[in-house]
Nucleic acid binder design. Structure first.
Lengths: 254, 254
DNA sequence: GAGTGTGAACGTCTTCACAGCG
DNA sequence: CGCTGTGAAGACGTTCACACTC
């Protein structure tokens, strides 16, 4: 999730649920594809399928934006594209800086979907003096010393951190001090930021671990279905029922 | 979110909430750091701070795993590391393939946190014949033709897709057909998979758009400092195209 | 008839607050 | 006393089902 701090008063007049906001980009992408194929209208059913959600959820989501559909017909593709874009703030241009131009930073700089939707890479910043001046994705890398002036001069409010974990908090502090109020963090660290600054994180390692959890469970289920036999290789005994009071003493090794 | 098909019908009595699972890697990381500093025990308060959550949530999360703490004292760091690792399935080795060795794929292959926690890059796969044999992060890239045999021979159950959007679904289908049951998708596409296959996605563009939404709202709040609920306005006064010409939301609402 | 928009039911996650144990 | 573990309350999110509109 985002916002380590940020207590949304929750009662702003304009209350679009966070979960809905997180899906708007998905709808927008599906709609853009339809728009390119010159499809004039879509039903909630069709659009939901394209976005990978169910139609009730989609309709509910759109209801927070207003009544943009036509009963018996569906939604006007172009109109919806515009409305969602506006809602997400993509009708304006967002200059973004990427800090940390290693493998990942370079990949991000080269990422096409970046520029396509309102975002513009204003600068690439790296701490390695040897990188300075070297162009990545057609943009010359600048040294960390320039960070503050780059932020200020370009009116940057969104920063992307792709540095090693050890440098992330420090970079974050400098970005925030210079005026950045939204941060996308790729470094495997918990960032601490003042109120009013949003942080979202993308963490490969965490995603893999979540997959591993489910993967392990799948493996366990197979065994359980076929044989009630003792668990194989690494299968863990695991506590039995977790009843209301079924507290398990656990195995407590080492 | 992930898993288009995650109706856990309370199969196993082992019901750890999804939200909790998603935080376990976070706790594990914080605990590992403590372990390296040879800290013997932590309180829920301290650990929660390190992981960026609140202590009630952390205690609740741990309560799903069992009673691993000591009242009046806290949690034994080493013991918890072990328990969480086991719960996440990290006590075993997960071979992973990365498909699509462009900028991003290379970045992922080089990512250290990969190998550190139970995950091992079993193979790198790319559709470009010119890439074949070329080593990336010390691992020779193999051609897509080999995909099925690589999966089978290495018993791979987790695949990472870092291809362009257009190729993602096709690669996904092949991975699944070959036996992969967990997919981490970096391509900006909605993947369709059969039941029993988990998909998690990482999407830079979506994250940025979510940030832009909040960023826009921050900028708009300045104007409406104390306007007592201007009623449920349907049509917002157009995004006030505040150009990127040095206009930074520097003002803090009183 | 077809498909949106939405109250109400339901389920999940978070937070509270305190009993209970070391 | 300090801190965990957890029912209960509350906030949030999803799904249902149908009234309503085109």
């Amino acid at each position: 999730m985002a916002t380590g701090r940020t207590h949304r008063p929750a009662t702003r007049s304009r209350g679009i649920p966070e979960a809905t906001v997180a899906r708007l980009p998905l709808y927008l992408r599906a709609l853009t594809a339809l728009s390119e194929r010159s499809v004039p209208t879509v039903s909630s059913e069709e659009l939901a399928a394209a976005a990978g959600v169910n139609s009730a959820k989609l309709r509910k989501d759109f209801s927070y934006l207003g009544s943009y559909g036509t009963r018996g017909v569906g939604y006007d593709v172009e109109y919806l594209v515009y409305q969602i874009s506006r809602e997400l703030g993509l009708t304006q241009d967002w200059p973004v800086v990427i800090v940390g131009i290693g493998n990942l930073g370079a990949a991000l700089a080269n990422y096409g979907g970046f520029a396509s939707r309102g975002f513009r890479v204003a600068a690439l910043i790296d701490a390695d003096p040897a990188m300075a001046g070297k162009p990545v994705a057609g943009i010359p890398v600048q040294h960390t010393d320039e960070l503050e002036s780059i932020i200020t001069d370009n009116g940057v409010s969104i920063g992307v951190i792709a540095t090693p974990a050890g440098a992330a908090q420090q970079v974050c502090d400098r970005l925030v001090a210079a005026g950045v109020t939204s941060i996308l963090n790729f470094a495997p660290t918990v960032l601490t930021v003042p109120d009013g600054v949003d942080v979202r994180k993308v963490d490969l390692s965490i995603e893999l671990q979540i997959l591993a959890f489910h993967e392990q469970r799948k493996a366990g289920e197979e065994a359980a279905v076929d044989t009630a036999a003792p668990a194989a290789v690494r299968r863990q005994p695991a506590a039995t029922d977790q009843g209301p009071d079924g507290d398990v003493p656990a195995v407590m090794p080492a």
